[in-house]
Design a protein around this nucleic acid. Structure first.
Length: 536
RNA sequence: GACCCUAUCAUCUAACGGUUAGGAUACAGCCCUCUCAAGGCUGGUAUACGGGUUCGAAUCCCGUUAGGGUCGCCA
């Protein structure tokens, strides 16, 4: 086992310029990627890199029971996918890169143990032989008698075992854990400076927490302190469920003679249910998992922009003033994180952001993204896309005026297939009856006449104005208003207006009464398809 | 039960003792218009409640209520 001095020598203090921040994201390999991990990762990555510092990835796998195969890969790929790249950490195969390796806690066992040993020697820690059942009973008694539950003060039974007693237990082969011998006074408060929450007055920790478990691995508390010291983390960013542990963590830093990092605790993402807000839960909420967003095909940049918006509300203004900049250029600020009570994960807002993001993409960018999505989640659709690249790209280009007033109707890649149905004969399944239903007030013979007359004059070579002139002419001939103002002033004088005539063509050609620009649709479909759909 | 945190439109939030309480999203209406979008314009009973402090409170203090969190050999 190395000595603390040897370890310190192996992990020297980082030599970084003034103000450079070192942050990390530290997920557990449970096989579940929570959106909150992306949120934290994005925040930390931005803060570190915008300050000229270091962002690293650490795998917190001290709970071997929850470890899942392939989880490492999921973590790395997830972050990668959203453009969050660590300077140090592990790769998809779990291999380390960076000079503070290893970055997987279970591999750092001897490091933690060296420090545990040192605390033991200083009398700042002790072995505890209490069984889980004994602790349960103790807790129940405490609850019943109304005392604060926990292993502290007179309830810390193993705290004052003599060397002989300890030796005896060890000889008997009794399992044990190592506890920190706390000198804190619960009735005293300590001021904790938090970058997000401000100053907090928290009671000192007086609980003799477990720092090393029966399996020889550290608990989160101990691993956090040892790793963030050795790896030189300057800013610890994590969920605010950790706030009440900060006094303990500070205590541990002091006991080990180290300087504690700065802390930034953010509130977890919430959702509403039955009128109440609650934490997004991995058990109950599919949208808590990043895989949900992959399955639906939310553009990565949309989720990133949405998260930035939650991190700092000023992102919106920044985006409006910098429409063409990369979202990663947005300066993220700890102090402006104000989701004090926990922000609701708002899909309506995400959708609005996503529409903007997609509207800024070119048709071929959209095509590629949809194809990539479909290859994984909708194979038949992927084949169709691959076999009709130019055709689909043309379709996606309808009313796509980059930088100008572009259509904003695609939220996520999943939506695209449904918008394409009437461009393919085998997907175009609207029946004659359904069409007539959509055109309801008009009679079938009226519809037939309009269709026939349009077919007679339809020329694919016409430009849009000429095309529309035909529709107007038909409208006029049959008593439909061509002047909207005139129609509005006296609707009863007309059979309808031009839009009703256009609607006939729209429904016959597409099977829908709401579509993008009909002229462009006809151009893309080509005269053959247009004619066959207009004929009865 | 103890301790901690939080409370502004439906939602995310701005305001850090002086604003007609601002913006975005959503919603509604109007305009534009071959439909739908997009775009433009307009709109709405927001400072949880009750006390203080102050010339002046969303902002500071106290209490109430409501939410969230922690009290594990899980992180």
């Amino acid at each position: 086992m190395p000595t603390p001095a040897e370890i310190e020598a192996r992990y020297p203090r980082r030599n970084l310029p003034e103000g450079a921040k070192v942050t990390r994201v530290a997920p557990s390999p449970t096989g579940f990627m929570h959106v909150g991990t992306l949120y934290a990762g994005l925040l930390c990555e931005r803060v570190a890199h915008q300050s000229g510092g270091v962002f690293y990835l650490r795998i917190e796998d001290t709970d071997q029971k929850r470890k899942v195969d392939g989880a490492m890969e999921l973590i790395v790929r997830s972050l990668d996918r959203y453009g969050i790249h660590a300077d140090e950490g592990v790769d998809v195969n779990g291999n380390d890169f960076g000079s503070y390796a290893p970055y997987t806690q279970s591999v750092r066992r001897d490091i933690y143990q060296a420090y545990v040993k040192s605390l033991l020697e200083q009398g700042l820690a002790y072995p505890c032989f209490c069984a889980a059942e004994d602790l349960d009973i103790m807790r129940k008694i405490q609850e019943k008698t109304g005392v604060r539950p926990g292993y502290y003060g007179k309830y810390a039974k193993c705290r004052n075992l003599t060397d002989e007693q300890v030796l005896e237990n060890l000889k008997a082969g009794k399992p044990f854990v190592i506890r920190f011998k706390s000198s804190g006074n619960y009735d005293k408060r300590m001021i904790i400076k938090d970058l997000v929450k401000g100053d907090l007055a928290l009671p000192e920790n007086d609980i003799d927490v477990v720092i090393m478990k029966g399996d020889g691995l550290p608990t989160y508390h101990f691993a956090h302190v040892v790793d963030d010291h050795l790896m030189g983390t300057t800013h610890v960013t994590r969920g605010d469920e950790w706030i009440s542990s900060v006094p303990l963590h500070i205590q541990l830093f002091v006991a080990l003679g180290w300087k504690a990092p700065k802390y930034a605790h953010f509130a977890p993402l919430q959702k509403t249910e039955n009128g109440n807000k609650r934490k997004l839960s991995k058990r109950h909420d599919p949208e808590a998992s990043l895989t949900y967003f992959w399955e639906k095909g939310y553009p990565e940049s949309a989720l990133i922009e949405y998260m930035l918006n939650l991190i700092n509300a000023s992102f919106e203004d920044w985006r409006r003033n910098n429409p063409d900049k990369d979202a990663f250029d947005f300066p993220v600020n700890f102090n402006k994180i104000s989701n004090a009570a926990g922000a609701l994960f708002d899909f309506v807002k995400l959708h609005s952001i996503s529409k903007e993001v997609v509207a800024k993409m070119t048709a071929s960018q959209v095509y590629n993204a949809v194809l990539k999505w479909a290859s994984e989640y909708n194979k038949p659709f992927a084949d169709r896309l691959a076999n009709n690249k130019e055709y689909v790209t043309r379709i996606l280009n309808v009313e796509r005026n980059i930088g100008k007033k572009s259509r904003k109707d695609i939220v996520k890649w999943e939506d695209v297939e449904g918008d394409l149905t009437y461009f393919f004969d085998d997907l175009f399944t609207t029946t004659q009856a359904e069409k007539m239903d959509l055109l309801k007030p008009l009679s079938e013979s009226d519809i037939q006449i309009i269709a026939n007359e349009f077919m007679a004059v339809y020329n694919p070579a016409d430009d849009k104005d000429a095309w529309f002139a035909h529709i107007k002419a038909i409208a006029e001939k049959h008593g439909f208003a061509t002047d909207m103002k005139a129609f509005k002033e006296n609707p009863s004088a007309f059979k309808g207006n031009v839009s009703d005539v256009a609607k006939v063509l729209r429904v016959l050609v597409t099977g829908r009464d709401k579509t993008p620009d009909l002229y462009e649709i006809m151009q893309i479909l080509g005269p053959e398809k247009v004619k066959s759909r207009l004929s009865f």
